[in-house]
Amino acid sequence: MPVYERGYTHWQPSGRRARPAWLVIARRGIVEPLRRRWLFLLILAAWVPAIFKGGIIYAKLKAGNILDLMGGGWTSIEPEGFLRFLEGQRFFVFVLLAITGAGLIATDRRENGMSLYFSRPLGLVDYIGGKALTVVFFYCLVTLLPVCALCVFAYLISPGAVGAELLLGTPLRALVYCLLAGTSTSLVLLAFSSLGTRSIFVMVWWTLLVTGTDAVGGIAEGLLHKGGIQVVNFLGQYHNAASLLFASPRRLAGVSPWVSLAVVTAWTALALWVLRRRIRPVEVVS
């Protein structure tokens, strides 16, 4: 019977498998922003450095070490080179996450969406997990995915000796780093999102956190000549801690990677605490 001839009918289960709630939330969070064309352009722009690096790697492997002078460590196909590439993606990570993540919880709070979500059979972990997965997806789209693509590309054009590291070691390091850093960053962004109801304010706070702490760290270091002050640099801590994973000698001046790891853990714990307190189906107004 066609739909337009029916009244209300009871649902007959079809026997198909339902997706878990966190996956449904993440899928929607990913698909909705991708409908905007300009976001596609931004993602494409975020891949330009990877294409450039790929070109340099190609030229280097074909033309020899002459090109080392051109790109320095950035063109290296050692793990260090890929860490530097990830550091270079910082700007795109910052912008893309601000656009796709700022409104994830703020909009739900503004439109009383929490009440809808938590009238369904899902819990706090599903909700936060789904939203965080959305942010992690966009994070990995401009970090992990280009690294893996570059590794495969470099492997295909390089002599066999470096193959194992390129095909396994570096992608694995990048995977671990991107998942951990992406999850932590996404939780911090979501915590900001849960504090407001307007995406624009969340973006302002996010900008202050990322660029503000970077600037404050740099200025204070320049004025006080103390490297340890860089511990306030938000995104810098992730790259500093990653130097352990990528066995890189490049570190933030005066800040141990272990301290950075502790700072990152503290940020993540704080974000989780905020999310736990802020995400409720009911607004309690004192």
Partner: peptide, 29 residues
């Protein structure tokens, strides 16, 4: 709910299907 409850950026059918999936219905159902 009385207040809000309409998530912006979605079509009517998109919102209702989304809520259905969150309630445990398979995507096509």
């Amino acid at each position: 709910p009385e207040r809000g409850g309409v998530i912006p950026g979605m079509s009517g059918v998109g919102l209702v299907a989304y809520m259905g999936e969150l309630s445990g219905l398979p995507s096509r159902d």
